[in-house]
Amino acid sequence: MVAYVSQLAFKTVPHFGKISTKNLASYAPNLMLWGGAWASCVAVYTSGWPIFQDTFYKKLPYFGSYWVKEVLPEDKQY
């Protein structure tokens, strides 16, 4: 019986381009922080957008009242 290794057995780590599960895991904390930065960027640029105001910003605990604009019916132009 032969008890030696005839050649090195190479195995390829599953990867997508240069991304493998291992380096994705090491990037994960930074990517999550970038996700937070992206979310606050979206919040800045959508803060003047009515559907976002109604869905999210009016419901914020302390600042929410800023987006609630009450105009009495007799003061409405149309």
Partner: peptide, 23 residues
């Protein structure tokens, strides 16, 4: 130190600053 935190802080501060300054 981390650019993600730096950029995120700027945007978050911008989001808070808008209503505060306007009010």
């Amino acid at each position: 130190k981390r650019n993600a935190v730096f950029v995120g802080t700027i945007f978050a501060a911008g989001f808070v600053f808008q209503p505060l300054f306007d009010s």
